[in-house]
Design a protein around this nucleic acid. Sequence first.
DNA 1: TTTTTAAATGCAACATCGTTGCGTTTTATT
DNA 2: AATAAAACGCAACGATGTTGCATTTAAAAA
Lengths: 127, 127
Amino acid sequence: MKNTRNTTAKSAILELIKNSEVALSHAEIQKLNQELCDRVTIYRILDRLVTEDVIHKIATPDGTIKYAACHHNHDNHEHTHNHVHFSCEKCHSVTCLDSVEPSYTIPKNYLVKEVNFTLSGLCPDCI
Amino acid sequence: MKNTRNTTAKSAILELIKNSEVALSHAEIQKLNQELCDRVTIYRILDRLVTEDVIHKIATPDGTIKYAACHHNHDNHEHTHNHVHFSCEKCHSVTCLDSVEPSYTIPKNYLVKEVNFTLSGLCPDCI
DNA sequence: TTTTTAAATGCAACATCGTTGCGTTTTATT
DNA sequence: AATAAAACGCAACGATGTTGCATTTAAAAA
C-alpha cells in the first residue's frame, strides 16, 4: 500500500465528515472549509480517504456524490458499506441507516460485489 | 397535464431506450444519435420522457444518470420504479432486474416514497 | 537536529456536464 | 390555410471534476 501522510487539511476534512450527522458532498465540504485549502485538494483528499477505507462514497438518487465516515467493526476486522442510506427529497440530507438490513435474492449469472440501497422521501426533520 | 408533442427526435430517442438491453446515459444517447439533434435537445427530451412517465432515471454508484424504459403494469394501471438495478463495474452497463424483489424494514420516523436498490459487481457478459 | 525525498498542495488550464435565454422552426389545433 | 404554443438550435454560462507542473511540507533517514 502506498504511503500516505496526515496533513492539516486532511485531518480537518475527516473531522468534518466524522462530526456530521449526514453525508457531505464536495460542495458542502468546500463551503464548510472556506479558506483551509484549494478546491482541487479537497477532491484529492476525498479520494485518498476513500482509498484508505476511512470514508465511503454514496450516490444519491439525483447523482450527487456524498461522503460519510465508515463504521468499522473492530471485533472481527471486517466492515461493509452495504448498508441502507436515506436521502431526503426536501433538505437533501443523506443519512446512514445502520439498523435497516435489506434482504434480497441474488440474481442468477450475476456476481454481486456491492449493494447500494437508498431509500428516499422525507426525513424526520422534514415530515 | 401540460401538452406535449411527438417529434422525430423524441421518437428516435425513445426507440433507442426501448430497444436497449441496458440503461443509457445522456452521453451514450448522444453518441448513438450523432446528427439527429442538439445536445441540449437530448436533455430536454429526456426530462420530458421522465415527466411523462415513459422512462425513468437511475443513478449509478458513481453518480452517472442513466435512463431506462418503464415497464407498466397495464392490468392495474399502477407501476413502480422501485425495482432492482444491476450496475456492472467492468462494462458499466446498467440493467433492470425486474425479477428481484428486495424486502426491508421501514425505518421509524422516515417517510419512504421511493426505493433505489442497485447491486453492483460483474454482469453475465463480464464474468 | 539537519538532511532528504516523495507525498501533498496551489494554481492555471482544461474537459465534461447540465442549464438558460432567445430567436426560429415545427406540430397540431382552429 | 392560419394560428398559437411546443420544440428546437445555438450561444453563452455555471457547476463539476481532472491534469500538469512548480512549490511546499511531512516524515523517514542520516
